[in-house]
Design a protein around this nucleic acid. Structure first.
Lengths: 233, 233
DNA sequence: AAGTGGTCTAGACCACTCC
DNA sequence: GAGTGGTCTAGACCACTTA
């Protein structure tokens, strides 16, 4: 019987995980209340709460006031993945990072992008195109829009010297954004720039960031063939 | 001055976010200790701790004992995204979900897959191929390997009646796994099955799940063109 | 050695929701 | 109405790290 003491929230969490895994508590079933578990383990209810809250965030439990806690039926897996900071990612591979500005202009965006950027009618945005290199190899093709009305200082920045992303994260606070992952087929121009064949399947990340109700920037990253984004669950 | 009281951990968190966003606390800078903030806000230290812990998990703060808390230099790093449960995803769009088994056989896997699956030399694995449909349209092509040594019951399952994923999540507990996202170019066969053109860029998710030190299953999901995985940060 | 975050406790009250 | 999770408190001790 002399089981290890279950006093820390980590050990409570581990024990609950074990019971779920061992099917002592089956999917969809109720588990004892926090107070009961606290009594069983001989710890405070707050400790049990801390443990169960983590399991609920991980999607392993469904918790509701009054109703109690159930083992989730479909352990909807939530993966937390690190959004790559290109410079770090490339340098972590032991390669030299380099950003090359390909184009820069102030122009009216296409209708779809104007909506995405919440631009006023006829408003001109800063359009940037650039290439991130890992050593001598093309790594990511970046197409970006920035709203100079929201970020006036941007017009004076020399993006030959610093990549837009690095400038933005250090100079413009933002509140949130959204990210989409998808795939595309390399166009002729993309193939030329990324040094691959037209039609190659390429991984794409699109990100938009905002502050308040204003859209700061919208960026599309097209990765060279073979790129994989990896995480654990 | 009659500012709203800052007593709940959510309001503490919001106020800290505001100060970071307003550059009152700049990236890389130390912020006051938990005790100081608790005194300022007139709440318990545990409440401040709860708020700051969340911000650290979100990547906005770097916290270390004795060293204190700093505003993170690179604020955007982590996004949590829900791994799609195909049936739910499709039904949420108001379409009928359907799984069609394309192939099933017991055979020795290619060398690379044998390593991934931690299969013994010469061991035969269950190979499944199937198609997930949204209404009448192909949605995802699934290629899967399952180790019957780890999951003996699998040999008796009728995968015409239930998709491998749904059977596995309800019958086999697992501890963890890893996921990779990438892109590929549609092969002739993939194009035929997914009803697209060869060469189309397709989004790919590869997932492996394990329990203990045994690999349960390894799956490759190839999505029909146009698929986007979306999340907020 | 000392300061800071990490955690635990015992108790309390609140908010939500099911009955 | 009552049971459950959600949160807050005041205090305490621990663990880690830096000075």
């Amino acid at each position: 019987m002399a089981a290890r003491q279950i006093r820390s929230w980590q050990s409570v969490q581990q024990e609950v995980r074990r019971r779920i895994k061992a099917r002592e508590w089956r999917p969809g079933e109720m588990i004892p209340s926090e107070a009961e578990l606290a009594a069983e383990f001989g710890c405070a209810r707050a400790t049990v709460n801390r443990a169960l809250r983590g399991l609920a965030e991980a999607g392993l439990l469904d918790r509701r006031r009054k109703a109690g806690s159930r083992v989730a039926l479909h352990p909807v897996r939530k993966a937390t993945l690190d959004i790559p900071v290109l410079r770090n990612e490339i340098e972590a591979k032991g390669l030299a990072y380099c950003y090359r500005l390909l184009a820069r202009r102030l122009c009216a965006p296409p209708a779809e992008m104007a909506i995405r950027m919440k631009a006023d009618a006829g408003e001109r945005l800063l359009q940037l195109s650039g290439l991130h290199l890992a050593g001598a190899r093309p790594y990511v093709l970046e197409g970006r829009w920035i709203n100079p009305r929201v970020v006036p200082e941007v017009e004076a920045v020399d993006f030959e010297a610093i990549s837009p992303n690095e400038w933005l994260v250090t100079h413009v606070p933002f509140e949130g954004g959204d990210i989409a992952f998808s795939a595309t087929s390399a166009s002729a121009e993309e193939a030329r720039i990324l040094d691959c064949r037209p039609g190659d399947g390429l991984f794409v990340i699109e990100r938009m960031t905002w502050s308040g109700d204003q859209v700061i920037t919208s960026v599309r990253l097209v990765f060279a063939p073979g790129y994989r984004m990896h995480t654990q669950i």
